[in-house]
């Protein structure tokens, strides 16, 4: 039996009368690339924030890396990486300073920070930019850097919230190469997106509509199940029924 790193049972989040996430249940295996699809406002980010320990669920159960999302957020946070929709490295710090800070607060030893940041900068080809402020980098590089920082402390799971928004196709492709590489090293990837071609890269995908999970399987099986050629069509069939207007 495969190791489950995320277990979710009827997880719900309400904001007043509004049910943002409605009793979602799923499990994610170790080393898997797990895609979370849905229109804007479907509840993807809210679900992800609960799993990251940024938001208390209203009801339901969930554990991440073996820790409870109600009581053990501190332990969860030690074992995950997170990259939000909004670029959130310090723009007034340099690449190396950002890496050192985030590596430091996750408890990576100083020597290790130095070694890993050198190899990281080399891998990203940012040697000449390493001492420049992050705010001056082009968006595509920023995103790649943000992802690298999110997995710098070698977490068990990394949560990516629409990581490729606004990025050109070539960079997106490179970005997904990085995701594959991270998955190959044993990091579980939990990624939300609304690029349907990206969905095809995932091992399994779920489609969220109006806070509920409407489909969950491998891309191949889903296409078979809905008798369509692409995930795009799967998504269209499911999302067509959505009541919530996109924000």
């Amino acid at each position: 039996m495969e190791e489950k790193v995320i277990i979710c049972k009827e997880l719900t989040k309400k904001f007043g009368d509004f049910i943002a996430v409605d009793k979602i249940s799923f499990e994610v295996n170790k080393g898997e690339i797990f895609g979370f699809l849905g229109a804007n406002g479907a509840g993807k980010t809210t679900a992800m924030r609960m799993l990251c320990g940024l938001s208390f669920p209203s009801s339901g159960e969930a554990s991440v890396a073996g820790f409870n999302v109600y009581r053990q957020q501190q332990y969860i946070k030690r074992n995950i990486g997170y990259m939000s929709q909004k670029f959130s490295l310090y723009e007034d710090l340099t690449i190396l300073e950002n890496i050192r800070f985030f590596g430091g607060v996750y408890g990576v030893p100083a020597k290790e920070i130095k070694r890993r940041s050198n190899s990281l900068v080399e891998k990203l080809g940012l040697q000449s930019e390493a001492k420049k402020k992050v705010g001056d980098l082009p968006l595509g590089w920023k995103q790649k850097l943000a992802f690298s920082v999110a997995i710098f402390h070698q977490p068990k799971i990394v949560f990516l919230d629409e990581p490729t928004g606004g990025v050109d196709p070539v960079t997106r492709r490179q970005f997904w190469d990085m995701i594959y590489e991270a998955a190959a090293s044993g990091i579980t990837i939990f990624v939300t997106t609304h690029y349907m071609d990206e969905a095809e890269y995932c091992n399994r995908i779920t489609v969220m509509v109006d806070g509920k999970i409407e489909a969950l399987d491998t891309p191949q099986n889903l296409k078979k199940q809905f008798a369509v050629k692409s995930i795009d069509d799967v998504f269209y069939q499911l999302a067509r029924g959505a009541k919530r207007s996109a924000d």
Partner: peptide, 13 residues
């Protein structure tokens, strides 16, 4: 405002 607090909140700080 910058959104960096979210990145802090998700760390064990």
């Amino acid at each position: 405002e910058a959104g960096t607090i979210e990145q802090i909140n998700v760390t064990p700080v």
